[in-house]
Design a protein around this nucleic acid. Structure first.
Length: 594
RNA sequence: GCCGACGUAGCUCAGCUGGUAGAGCACUUCACUCGUAAUGAAGGGGUCCCCGGUUCGAGUCCGGGCGUCGGCUCCA
């Protein structure tokens, strides 16, 4: 009608909008197929999404994944039969009447809430409420695949009916679909759970669900994060503290967590008939008690308590995921007690800190400002100030951010940093939370210059977030190919034959003595085999020692010449001195000057 | 917590309509002593997730539980 496109005319299959329209139209074919195969089904809504489309239905009988095959077959039949889309426009009342007559309550609800006239698209026996645009006909749909089945709540609210969601994807050619499936497989190869087993980093066990077992190599990575955390905290005026794991319930009633998060807390009953103790799910109350244990002066502030302690959160079943969502969680946590005037500087410093940390791994998180939720403590005026302070800091650092209304914690707004895993899912990493409430709940004060008691403001922050989660994301980010400074085994020495084993071990000792993580592989295997294994373990350097190197040692001195192979295959000849120098340069990336 | 799927050797997986469990890799031993992504041979290894039921007989069928996975919801 001159303002809006109702039908797709392009055949440029590389155009993302074209793909979007193709998938949207395929979703309508799906709905038509489902209606024919499952009479009485109620149809909800089916938008295109990043990688495909989905459609939500309320089936009269439960269906299983096995049923998808028949539905997929039916879609193909529709395409081969031919489908054309037609558009009509109705008034809201007419649309409601029409869907009521068809006994489609979800459509009725959507039509009721629509503004202005309503457009309907029809293909074959199926008419749907839809903004469009659509394909003109189904002939360009060359590849369709229904990928999975899931429950999804109507309008995303778990108080509503749970509908059955069918996911699928569609392409302009079979080759494009194959390429898509190939990309998914490649992404799965980087999955931290797969690499965790392959590289012997960690494992999960039924004996303690959601609580990863850190293997020696995984712990090298873990300690790399811990070292980074400790070193930078020390440089930035944070004070390392240690607070208990078990508390009386009263502590968590005071903090407000008992009322808000009790169902996700673990409780320990020491003996029959005794009061249970709360296993800490976060460090805040401990740090509050620590602050309150002494008289504080405004001259002491800011006080920055840092602790990376083990926390336990009893996450809802069905939400655990490898290292990315665990019950046993460790945060690079800190609580900073400040005066109102110190808030801006402190948050500025934290954002600098965040930038420094994430640059170490060449990753860029997305920032999100989460504002006041419905269920909250404190006055609107306090929330105005707190939200304003966080937003001002984001602006000053010219960080791109989105606002998530209502996503703040019950005690304050927060800046969250998000990253994406190999499956394209977003995870919250670091968080900076401004809190006017908890210090008051705990009765914390400091003596001001005016010789009066004032309540401090607390900034909660975990910059990497959960160390478990950060490690998981990091494994996927590097695909297991960790930079030299972080790699669990930095170099592997391979003596060619039996006669070279002694020299190989001596070389290993030299490199270990230089402060590096080096192992020797003197198994009875061929050189090719051992190089292959080193590549599969993604070891950054392999040093081969055989007759040639032994000869150079006799002619000049030991380790005057070494055959060095870098991950990926590049080879060079270096002396031990040169190799150590190379290692030192690479290791310095952990903490570059400036 | 909800919907769907899955759980078999250390790992990845096969096992048809119920008849007493298999492959590759890994591991052990022997031979080979090797020049940059897989040397050969032999051998060991299993409460088929747990509990209950059906059956002459259950890895396989049924029920319950636990765990894992893909979503939904939640995430201090």
């Amino acid at each position: 009608d001159g303002e809006k496109v109702h039908f797709l005319t392009t055949r440029d299959t590389s155009d993302p909008d074209a793909l979007y329209v193709l998938r949207h139209s395929t979703a309508h074919l799906l709905a038509e197929a489902v209606m024919r195969l499952h009479p009485g089904v109620k149809i909800a809504i089916g938008p295109p999404i990043a990688e495909g489309f989905y459609y939500d239905f309320e089936f009269p009988e439960p269906i299983s994944e096995a049923d998808l095959e028949a539905i997929e077959e039916e879609i193909r039949r529709e395409i081969s039969e031919g489908r054309e889309w037609t558009r009509e426009q109705l008034s809201r009342e007419d649309a409601i009447a029409r869907f009521e007559a068809e006994d489609q309550p979800y459509k009725v609800e959507l039509a009721r809430e629509a503004e202005g006239a309503i457009s309907l698209y029809t293909q074959g026996a199926f008419t749907d409420l839809c903004r469009g645009p659509h394909l003109q006909d189904a002939t360009p749909i060359k590849a369709v695949k229904l990928t999975s089945l899931a429950g999804a709540y109507w309008r995303g609210d778990e108080k509503n009916t749970q509908l059955t969601r069918i996911y699928g994807t569609a392409f302009y050619s079979q080759a494009d679909l194959d390429a898509h499936l190939e990309r998914l497989e490649q992404a799965r190869a980087r999955d931290h759970r797969r690499l965790g087993t392959q590289l012997d980093l960690f494992h999960l066990s039924d004996h303690s669900p959601g609580s990863p077992f850190g293997h020696p190599k995984g712990m090298v990575l873990w300690n790399g994060l811990e070292d980074l955390r400790r070193r930078e905290n020390r440089r930035r005026g944070y004070l390392e503290v240690k607070t208990p794991l078990l508390y009386d319930i009263r502590t968590y009633i005071t903090s407000g967590h008992y009322d808000n998060y009790r169902e996700n807390m673990f409780f320990v009953q020491p003996h029959e008939g005794e009061e249970p103790l709360a296993l800490k799910p976060m460090n805040c109350p401990g740090h509050m008690l620590l602050f309150g244990s002494q008289l504080r002066s405004y001259r002491d502030l800011p006080i920055r308590y840092a602790e990376s302690s083990t926390l336990h959160r009893d996450e809802r079943g069905g939400t655990l995921h490898g290292l990315l969502r665990v019950k046993h969680i460790t945060q690079d946590d800190a609580h900073v007690f400040v005066t109102e005037e110190q808030i801006q500087d402190e948050i500025d410093g934290m954002i600098d800190f965040v930038n420094y940390l994430y640059e170490r791994f060449q990753v860029t998180p997305r920032a999100e400002l989460s504002t006041r939720p419905e269920n909250r403590l404190g006055t609107d005026e306090q929330w105005d100030r707190a939200e304003g302070a966080l937003e001002a800091a984001l602006r000053r650092h010219q960080l791109d951010y989105v606002i998530s209304p209502g996503e703040g914690t019950f005690y304050g707004p927060k800046i969250d940093l998000h990253m994406t895993d190999v499956l394209g899912r977003s995870w919250q990493m670091g968080t900076i939370q401004l809190d006017y409430q908890m210090p008051v709940q705990f009765g914390l004060t400091y003596m001001g210059a005016d010789n009066r008691e004032h309540a401090p403001v607390v900034i909660h922050r975990a910059l990497l977030g959960s160390l478990e989660r950060f490690l998981g994301i990091l494994i996927e980010h590097y695909g297991g190919e960790f930079p030299f400074w972080l790699a669990p085994v930095q170099a592997l020495v391979i003596p060619v034959g039996e006669n070279h084993r002694e020299a190989g071990r001596a070389l290993r000792d030299e490199l270990v003595g230089g402060g590096f993580r080096v192992e020797v592989d003197d198994r009875d295997e061929t050189l090719g085999r051992r190089v292959r294994d080193a590549e599969l373990q993604k070891v950054p350097f392999v040093v081969v020692y055989g007759d040639r190197e032994a000869e150079a040692a006799r002619a000049w001195r030991e380790f005057a010449q070494l055959a060095v192979r870098e991950r990926g295959g590049e080879q060079s000849t270096l002396s031990l001195v040169e190799l150590l120098e190379r290692f030192r340069e690479l290791a310095a990336e952990a903490d570059p000057p400036g």
